[in-house]
Design a protein around this nucleic acid. Structure first.
Lengths: 331, 331
DNA sequence: CGTTAGCACTCGGTATCATCGACTGCCAAG
DNA sequence: CTTGGCAGTCGATGATACCGAGTGCTAACG
């Protein structure tokens, strides 16, 4: 596709631009190590690279900056090996060794960790409720017309939903529903689509139906944790872009579907327009699935300017997702 | 303190500056309705107001802008009556009429509502766990060495904490702990400082102790929901300020203590440096306590530039806190 | 004595213009 | 094919002038 020298030049441009955020000129490349060739030759090669769509010029008499296609080539062919530096390894290790307590808290802290390590906004998509084994179900009265149904899952998360109950429903019916639900749900998952046979008591059946319905609806909710959103204000100097990106990040469902879509397509990086979310076209997203015992239970990722340090971001996201998966496996 | 005419002029300056974000000159004031006086007189008065610290000039030959002290006078003497426009009333009403489901979800949505209504960043501090009546306690095994203790509270929130358990602790002990904890905790609050008498079984006592300890520690955690953080990117044109403010907002404990401090001091507005959080010195915070049956169970507030529409913010925060309190009271 | 018209002055913002320098593209020589 | 050289492009920078909004001050006025 690209001969060795073009590859080297493209790589050098990407590296330089990532480091300096300035368009890079031919003499910089020629001066730098790697390609032992004059600036004139570099110019010729860069002209070709521009024609082929890997580079572009902000204006005629400026240096080149990589296009999305240029970054894509870079991450596909030049961004290996994905190795993180020692201090990152150490910090990730320390974090997961010390991690304890509630699942939600740990995921939240994981997103902060990722944000700190990469200096980008980070996303952690937690396990969906419908894949985990149900350990316990309980229906508790809140008022004369409302109750909450609490489910404890094997992965340590606790889901709860509020259901409306009839005015005259007795405490006994609630207790009955707790027992009946437990009998049918414990040991299974919400994703199994469990059905509940009649208990013989209409009130209990109503409660169970309402509870199951609410749980089903709620179990498709996502647990999403964002971190480091303030860093986008540093990444772009155009205030308008900052505003747009932050606004988009506030729409959690956009972020969720964005990340999920990338992971589902088996990609680890979506560059610029590749992810199709227009207000984020100045951003790249680096993701990795979180895997526990072969099951894809969640995702982690970072979002930053297309001009991001891909090798570092890829490596960091990888190691965090790996360690998070292992940590969840132990749980 | 200030005679009537100075007051009118100060008020006009604040209104104008809030509306336009431009330093306002004497002729604008003179031209506007209210003070039937020439620009020269306004100039004289404005010079005095500046000497007394209510106004300042960005540079010598520019109009005046209010100082923090000027805003303070404005909100203390001129910002009444706090009435919201009809559309806000309607939207708040619709929101709380439709609000249902989990407490956390509703609080989250409340913060979004506030952000949309005011176009500022919003904060909702949820009820602390230690003031609500305990409806149910349950200890559920997660693994051979961990269990989760789940507490359902009268206000509809569900708290859970993970505790370590000894390797050999039996399911019977867990069940015993559930029963024992329920006997001592249901109907009380975590804030009561309930003690648990020995059950006669060492494992059960250990579990109960660990559970209670974890719950106590967790019950002081705050439920804080932020909304509209992207709006700060619109409120300031200095990127550096945006960065600082967003970064500070990410530190949730800062936000929590900030809001709590203001509420505890009985204030409803903290202007600029008044709140003492240096990175937010360009911001004002408007808060209101959420009261249920005389109890202060939480707070709502907005954070925006000192140049904010105080009457509108005060009125909106007030109505939202009021409706939220009533809604929580029904629950 | 407070108010006001008038005036000199200040100073940031904007437009103009020249300069500078970091590039490029191209060409001819190596 | 590579490379040195050169003309040309164009944004960035800085100097200069100008404009206008706005001030402070003073003198006149009712």
């Amino acid at each position: 596709m690209l001969d060795e020298r073009k590859t080297a030049i493209l790589s050098a441009v990407v590296h330089e631009y990532i480091a300096t955020a300035q368009p890079v000129g031919s003499s910089h490349i020629a001066g730098a190590s790697g390609v032992g060739v004059s600036s004139a030759t570099v110019r010729n090669e860069m002209a070709v690279l521009e024609q082929e769509g890997y580079l572009t010029q902000p204006h005629t008499s400026a240096g080149r900056i990589p296009t999305d296609k240029g970054y894509r080539f870079f991450v596909d062919h030049l961004a290996s090996p994905r190795r993180v530096d020692a201090v990152t390894t150490r910090r990730v290790g320390e974090f997961f060794d010390a991690a304890h307590g509630r699942l939600e808290e740990m995921l939240h802290q994981t997103s902060d960790l990722l944000a700190h390590l990469t200096h980008h906004a980070s996303v952690v998509l937690g396990p969906k409720a419908d894949a985990a084994e149900i350990r316990s179900v309980q229906v508790v009265r809140l008022s004369t017309t409302a109750a909450t149904v609490v489910v404890v899952l094997g992965n340590g998360s606790v889901e709860n939903e509020v259901i409306e109950i009839g005015e005259g429903v007795s405490d006994a019916a609630l207790a009955g529903a707790t027992v009946h639900l437990a009998a049918h749900l414990v040991g299974r998952t919400l994703g199994d689509g469990p059905e509940i046979v009649s208990s013989g008591d209409a009130d209990v059946d109503d409660l169970c139906g309402a509870a199951l319905h609410a749980l089903r609806a709620g179990s498709t909710d996502d647990h999403v944790y964002l971190g480091g959103t303030a860093t986008v204000a540093e990444a772009f100097d155009a205030v308008e872009v900052v505003r747009q990106v932050l606004h988009t990040l506030e729409q959690q469902f956009v972020v969720v579907s964005l990340v999920r879509d990338i992971v589902d397509r088996g990609m680890s990086v979506a560059i610029g327009v590749e992810h199709g979310v227009e207000p984020l076209s100045a951003c790249s997203v680096v993701v990795a699935p979180v895997v526990v015992e072969g099951e894809h239970v969640g995702s982690v990722g970072v979002l930053g300017p297309t001009r991001m340090n891909y090798p570092q971001a890829l490596a960091t996201v990888d190691i965090v997702s790996d360690r998070l998966g292992r940590r969840l496996g132990e749980g």
